[in-house]
Nucleic acid binder design. Structure first.
Lengths: 223, 223
DNA sequence: GTTTACATACCCGATTCGGGGTATTCTTGA
DNA sequence: TCAAGAATACCCCGAATCGGGTATGTAAAC
């Protein structure tokens, strides 16, 4: 039972090349080819549910709708189709937009055809495939999203040159404590709290509690 | 020039198995083997900078320090060493902890040896490698982290039963506009703004701008 | 010794906010 | 028709914040 795939690629030379080379693999059957997204979408309408391609190789840069937009639409109307992006783009924008659109794989155009075949097989088995240079960017993203909370606070504290005391006062602001309440908590006069707040606002370049809270949360100074 | 690797794995049978099978590849040279993290760290101290292994195959579950902890330490003291996790664990906890610790690859123990060799080569070339069933989890994570901003706002708006107008007023609060300024912007009286704010606070269960801003940002109602 | 940063403390007037209310009109759904 | 929600508008008053200042003492670095 061969794997039915589609190829969406605006450049005829590349499309024919892919078709030819993938055609050598008897476990792969090309059932759709399109030169742009709209053409692909039109063709998809003519398939019955049972004969839809299982995987579509999708270019990104095409006239009319981009491959990313097409991915959005296909994943919405045909969720069972897996999209394997094939592209020259290694920049993070395109990578993350593709993932967001629902792509299950991201290969580069200069990856060897063997990699394409392996990827197609993995996708059919419910996995995902990332070219190594893409995988490293994705892992970096994951690492950054999960940076230790403590480290982030320290970094931001340094960025804004806040003293430890000022960070404590800021925490009181974020918790919506009044000046006297912060004073009570830290065993200082409300007047002292007021003075610290003025200094904090100066360092953060804000003029109100609302702004201070917003910045503190967005920049990792508080939760 | 062969690739120098290390193997850290507590189970002797698996360690020997890996060693034997990888030993068949002449582009790979095993220069370190350890039954646990501490042993590996001790051995690493005896290498000169020039002879350190380029890649370490790291198990996760071991007595004493886990492979994840060891990865942390190694990436800190020997940042040029790439860590390839080899493990039975497919759960997200372990995946993300490993990535956070600095691993460049994550393979499963039942992946074929060919995949190990390919992964080793890719890591040396500066890429990263994820087993397909791991890649799909990572991509899901990325997709979730990047959920459409518009969708999130709508969901949260519904969660708090805010009207469209109330959402606009809340945006004005987040932007630190005064009541008269919000009124000017939306062509209504400051009194009207005041009334909307009261309604918003009731729905959000807050009592101040600071709290409203904090909640709005944390819950996706505003940026 | 001097300077800077930090922590502490205080005063004052102006402004805004917050919460207690009041009210009318329009739209939608039962 | 009625009720509820939304949008609009207004009053009152006390509380709290904000920004302009003032000041002293300590510690560390030059």
């Amino acid at each position: 039972m061969s794997i039915q795939i589609g190829i969406v690629e605006d450049q005829a030379r590349i499309r024919e090349n892919l078709k030819t080379r993938l055609g050598f693999f008897e476990e792969i059957e090309i059932v759709l080819e399109a030169e742009n997204a709209d053409n692909a979408l039109q063709q998809l309408q003519k398939f019955s549910k049972l004969t839809l391609p299982q995987i579509i190789l999708m270019d990104i840069e095409m006239p009319g709708k981009s491959g990313i937009e097409a991915t959005h639409i296909i994943k919405k109307e045909y969720p069972e189709i897996d999209i394997l992006i094939q592209t020259v783009f290694e920049n993070e924008d395109k990578i993350f937009q593709s993932i967001q659109a629902g792509a299950s794989g991201y290969l580069l155009k200069d990856d060897p055809i063997k990699k394409y075949v392996d990827a197609i097989k993995e996708l059919v088995n419910g996995g995902a495939v990332l070219s190594p240079s893409i995988a490293i960017k994705v892992m970096k993203f994951v690492k950054n999203e999960q940076s230790s909370k403590v480290d982030k606070v320290k970094e931001a504290q340094e960025e804004f040159s806040l003293s430890d005391r000022e960070l404590e006062i800021l925490q009181g602001i974020v918790e919506d404590l009044t000046e006297p309440q912060i004073g009570e908590k830290l065993f200082i006069s409300p007047h002292t709290v007021r003075t610290h707040i003025k200094n904090i606002y100066k360092k953060l370049h804000v003029h109100s509690r609302a702004s201070a809270v917003r910045l503190a949360i967005k920049r990792g100074l508080a939760q």
